[in-house]
C-alpha cells in the first residue's frame, strides 16, 4: 500500500520517494539544488540526540535538516 507522509514521519532507514518540496523559498531552492527534488529516493538514517535535526540519505550523500523544515517535504512510501 502506498501512502504519502512528511519526511520526519518516515520510519528509520525506510526507502521513500520525494513527492513534493515546499517551504521557505531560499531553503527550498537550496535543498532542491542539492538534489532533493520530486522523484529522488530518500531514506531517514539518523535522528540527533534531542530528536532534532534529522539526517537523510539521498543521491549517495547525507544531508541534515531540522524537523520543522523537513516536514515541508512530502514523500511516498
Amino acid at each position: 500500500m502506498k501512502s504519502v507522509v512528511s519526511l520526519p514521519e518516515l520510519p528509520l532507514r525506510k526507502l521513500a520517494v520525494v513527492e513534493a518540496v515546499e517551504g521557505d523559498r531560499a531553503f527550498r531552492r537550496r535543498i532542491m539544488e542539492m538534489g532533493l527534488i520530486p522523484g529522488t529516493k530518500v531514506r531517514l538514517v539518523a535522528v540527533a540526540p534531542m530528536g532534532d535535526p534529522l539526517t537523510l540519505e539521498l543521491r549517495s550523500s547525507r544531508l541534515s535538516l531540522r524537523r520543522k523544515e523537513a516536514a515541508q517535504v512530502r514523500v511516498r512510501v
Binding site: M34, S64, L65, E69
Partner: peptide, 10 residues
C-alpha cells in the same frame, strides 16, 4: 534564523 541545510560528507 536560517534553516539548517548541512551536508554530512563521507
Amino acid at each position: 534564523r536560517l534553516p539548517l541545510v548541512l551536508e554530512l560528507p563521507p
